[in-house]
Design a binder for these strands. Structure first.
Lengths: 211, 211
DNA sequence: TAATATATTGAACATTGTTCATAATCAACC
DNA sequence: GGTTGATTATGAACAATGTTCAATATATTA
């Protein structure tokens, strides 16, 4: 058989990703197989390989879509210029997103590209956009000219939240009294940001501004 | 064929784990298959299932062994009671271990137990022992009676380091100017600990000791 | 209408984890 | 030593995975 005019290439790409998203939401990474996606869209497994290079490709695109989605979700947060408060608001929204998309979101850190392959540029760009939200919240701490330091701090915070979420999700962090992810994340945010502020204060004292 | 008296149950268990470790060191989680382990020890795949419940079981035991190994490695660090300095020493040793055991160590966070299974108690105990090292380094910050807060902070730090390592390993954190894991981890440690200390100071000021 | 291009297929391959009847060996007893 | 019985390793077999590709059915063009 061949050549149905049900969908063109682009449409196929989109409905396949939608199907993948649907499966991922309920079954997670392990349930996300080529055959299931193919079944879901009413095409054969082989067809997927005309649209995606391989399953890793499809998964990366699904993750990228998810990054976009979270970005839109978090971009609605209106901060007031206080890093700790603003980050707590962002965290709250982040957690709300997580709760509705657990299995989908976990794919973000469960999936690992083979060592010999690296992430495409458009992926890195989407990620940078999301990190921009954290950078923005942290920016009041850093004087102009220290944008790199701010970006690094945002990445540290981002990765740390990942770690917290990942380990508590996997049950690899049985805490003293069953602390929730949110509680631990707030400890992280409060202490980390306070530390950043303290560091800046120390720099100001040691090297006073030149007028 | 059957019943060779080459090895008893316990020996089989040990040489299988050794073989798994060897494979894991060079090929990581994806290369760690039942057939490869069986080949390596000169037995058939089926034999593995007389010794381990399944591959997840074997992998959990491999991870536990690795936790033990890292504990012994890190326990040799002699701190001086300054949390930041001590944690930096621990970090240095941790990184040294990582460098020699990259693929093995990554299994720790790459591997995910199916949702319906939870980690055995002896695993949690080994993990707690390792966390004790961080708790110990943090302990000067906390007054007695706040052991739980100390334990929570240690867990936050541990998970955060995981996140940093995991994302930088996966190339999912392309930093501004190619910061190394060590640089980012030091930012985390310094800021987080400063924040903890600052928080304690604030508590002391607000609620002065009762004599 | 005929020829050409192309999209879809699904059977096929190599690998996975895992199971289990079979067979080989050891231990005990006569 | 021989027979029996329990135990243990086996490897073929199964289902499921990602992936490939010759065959084929349909659109498009001439």
């Amino acid at each position: 058989m061949a050549r149905r005019s049900d969908h063109n290439r682009g449409e196929l790409h989109d409905i396949a990703l939608s199907a993948a998203r649907k499966i991922a939401l309920t079954e997670g990474l392990k349930g996300l197989t080529a055959r299931k996606v193919a079944d879901e869209i009413g095409y054969s497994p082989g067809t997927l390989y005309n649209v995606f290079g391989d399953m890793d490709d499809l998964i990366i695109q699904l993750i990228a879509q998810t990054l976009d989605e979270l970005y839109i979700y978090l971009a609605s947060v209106r901060g007031e210029g206080n890093p700790i408060d603003d980050l707590k608001l962002i965290l709250e929204k982040y957690i709300k997103y997580l709760e509705g998309h657990r299995n989908l979101w976990n794919i973000l850190f469960e999936h690992q590209l083979p060592n010999d392959r690296s992430l495409p540029d458009w992926y890195t760009i989407k990620l940078a956009k999301l990190l921009g939200i954290i950078e923005n919240a942290l920016s009041p701490i850093f004087p102009s000219g220290q944008e790199d330091a701010c970006a690094n701090s945002a990445r540290v915070l981002w990765a740390s939240l990942h770690g917290l979420n990942s380990l508590s999700e996997a049950g690899k962090m049985r805490t003293v009294s069953a602390q929730s992810f949110q509680e631990l994340a707030e400890i992280l945010i409060v202490c980390f940001v306070k530390g950043l502020q303290q560091t800046q204060k120390e720099i100001d004292t040691t090297m006073p501004e030149v007028h």
